[in-house]
Simulated scan of single mutants.
Amino acid sequence: MDNTRSHDIAWLPGDGIGPEVTREALRVLDAVASAHGFSVTATEHRIGGAALDETGRPFPTSTREACLESDAVLLGAVGGPKWNDNTGEQRPEHGLLTLRKALGVYANLRPVRVPEARAGASPLRPDRVGGTDILFVRELTGGIYFGTPEGRTDDGARSTMVYSEAEIERIAHVAFQRAQRRDGHVTSVDKANVLEVSELWREVVPRIREEHYPDLELRHLYVDNAAMQVVRDPRQFDVVLTGNLFGDILSDLAAALPGSLGLLPSASVGGAVGLFEPVHGSAPDIAGQDVANPTAAILSAALLLDAVGETAAADAIRHGVDAALDAGFRTADLAASDEETVSTSTLGREVATHAADPAPKNAPTP
């Protein structure tokens, strides 16, 4: 096959299970690339603890340059007990924050799906969570995590929540544009009954809808009610739009719905180059044992392909994941007590096999 389309990926395996799960993501990427007529070139670079050990910095200049020159970045995970005593810019996690800033990404996308066939793995009742398909759109660069002034005072501490109209406008556009590709419904989450910042949020978001997306539905929920609704009836949500702090908490809460963090991908977009990574951490306790669930990393690769325009191949990956799991392939985090488990690499190979077949046209698209 004459592969006329090519995509260069900066591969940052990171620490812990990061190398294992992203290796399987690359295996699946190669499989769908071959089947869909394009090529993928992945070049490995250091970040996090691995970079600290090799270069003394968690985000070396060489890694930064490679990421900015790539079409997309695939990240595993950073951190581990080996570096727990590191502080400030010597923490592995500082490398991740610096990476996001270098790429200029401001929108974090976290899809959470619970297909009916796998609803039994959820800690909640299957009839309550089966069919869930939510996309969380979290603003990533503003809010209380980055507002100034902040810091310690003589008798306390202060963190300030700050958002500009421009920051709210651009993240609202991302949410509405994603809703156009899905069921056309956006739920905007805030705390406008208490916070001045949320009052501004509730003014700006409806204006963006009225001016640019009048055919889409929009409702508002206070964050405390939204948290209850995510657990009580997650199927009511399509796209959830919210700020940095609330998005962090709500998307982590929703991560419990499918029963394992090993199933959940994420994408950070909006800058020159997108960043794609599983939601889970480095899980050092199981690193190197070939038992980690690679599904989240594989689905992150599907989001990567969406971002570079290879939507058919992205849908093929999602089809491959569903097919492999529906066929009974389970890593230890997914298996019931009476089910056999498979290794990281076995599940990766099985997904790659299914993903190389044509994906159905109705494959779910975040």
Rank of each mutant, 00 (worst) to 15 (best):
D53P: 08
E116H: 14
G274E: 12
R5Y: 05
A172S: 15
V162W: 13
G56E: 05
P149A: 00
S198E: 13
A256H: 07
G151V: 11
I249Y: 06
A254Y: 02
Y213C: 06
M1E: 11
D30A: 14
S122A: 11
T344Q: 02
V112F: 04
W201G: 05
P358S: 00
T41W: 08
P294S: 12
K361E: 15
A363Y: 08
H212W: 05
P13I: 13
A297F: 09
I9S: 05
T160A: 12
E89W: 02
A356G: 03
G243F: 03
V351Q: 10
Q177K: 15
P58H: 05
L96S: 08
A355M: 13
A301V: 12
A254N: 05
P115L: 08
H319A: 12
L97T: 11
P358F: 00
R5V: 07
A117I: 04
V32P: 11
G120N: 06
H319P: 04
L12N: 02
M228P: 02
R232V: 13
R64Y: 01
R178L: 05
F246D: 11
K82Q: 10
S34T: 09
T242V: 03
E24C: 10
V308Q: 13
H280S: 05
F176D: 10
G328P: 02
T344Y: 04
L97D: 03
R128A: 15
A254L: 13
D71R: 15
S6Q: 15
D322P: 02
S260V: 10
A359F: 00
V279F: 04
G131S: 03
G328K: 01
A355D: 09
R158K: 10
H220E: 06
G49L: 11
T141E: 01
P126T: 09
E210M: 07
E89V: 12
G151L: 01
T63M: 04
L74N: 01
L253G: 09
R232P: 08
A227H: 00
L52N: 03
